[in-house]
Simulated scan of single mutants.
Amino acid sequence: MKLLTTDIKNAVLNSMEKLLQTHKSDLLEANKKDLDAFIKEDQALYDRLVMNDKKVEQMAQAVKEVRLQEDPVNKELSMQNLDNGLQIMNKTAPFGTIMIIYESRPDVTVEAAVLAFKANNKILLKGGKEAYHSNKALVKLWHQALEDNGLPKDYIQFLEMNRTQTQAFLRNPDQPLDLIVPRGGERLIAFVKEHAKCAVLVSGRGNNFMYVHPEADWEMTKKVLLNAKTHKISACNALDKILLDVTIPNFEAKVKELAQLLMEYKVNLIVDKHIHSILPNELIIDNEDIWKEEFLAMKCVLGAVSNQEEAMEKINLHSGGHSAAIMTADSQAAQQFMDGVDCAAVYQNASTRFTDGGQMGVGAELAISTDKLHHRGPLGLKQLVTNKYYVFGNGQIRVS
Rank of each mutant, 00 (worst) to 15 (best):
L239F: 08
W218V: 04
K54A: 08
A304D: 09
Q43Y: 14
K140H: 14
L115D: 00
A324N: 06
K118Q: 13
M89N: 04
E29D: 09
G361T: 07
V212I: 15
T247G: 02
K33Y: 09
L226I: 11
A199W: 10
E257G: 05
L45S: 14
A116P: 05
T5S: 14
S25T: 12
D34G: 02
F209R: 12
L201V: 15
E57W: 00
D217W: 10
T355V: 13
L27I: 14
V200F: 13
N74A: 13
S78Q: 09
T328E: 03
A216N: 12
G128L: 02
K9I: 04
L35C: 13
E29M: 08
G206V: 04
T164F: 07
L124Q: 09
L317M: 08
C343Q: 14
D371H: 05
T328P: 04
N172W: 05
V50R: 03
V56N: 04
R105H: 08
Q43G: 00
A345C: 11
L384Q: 04
K254D: 02
L179W: 11
K382I: 07
V305N: 11
V391P: 00
V399R: 13
A364R: 06
Y390K: 15
V200M: 11
E313D: 15
Q332M: 05
A196Q: 07
D53H: 14
F392S: 10
A60C: 02
I233W: 00
E147F: 05
L243R: 03
K136Y: 13
K40I: 13
F392P: 10
N172S: 11
P152F: 07
P182M: 02
E257F: 11
I397V: 14
I180T: 09
I290V: 13
E194D: 15
N237I: 08
G150H: 12
D7C: 03
L296S: 13
L244W: 02
K382Y: 15
K136E: 11
K254R: 15
K118T: 09
M161S: 12
K193I: 03
M327V: 00
M1I: 11
S25D: 15
A364S: 15
S15A: 12
S331I: 09
T97V: 15
I156S: 12
E252V: 01
K9M: 05
N10W: 03
V192C: 05
H213G: 02
T355L: 12
Y211N: 09
R183P: 01
E365R: 04
A334Q: 06
H195D: 01
A333W: 03
K372P: 02
V255D: 03
G204S: 10
G380R: 02
E29H: 05
L239S: 01
V271P: 01
G357Y: 06
R398V: 03
N307R: 01
K40F: 08
I326L: 09
L138R: 04
R376F: 07
H374K: 04
I100E: 00
G361K: 06
K136Q: 13
M312V: 11
R376P: 00
T370K: 06
K118M: 11
K33F: 03
D371R: 01
L19H: 01
L379W: 09
K256H: 10
N10C: 15
G128M: 01
A11Y: 12
I98R: 04
K153H: 06
N207S: 07
S277G: 03
Q58Y: 06
H195N: 06
A168P: 03
L28D: 06
V385G: 03
N10F: 10
S104D: 07
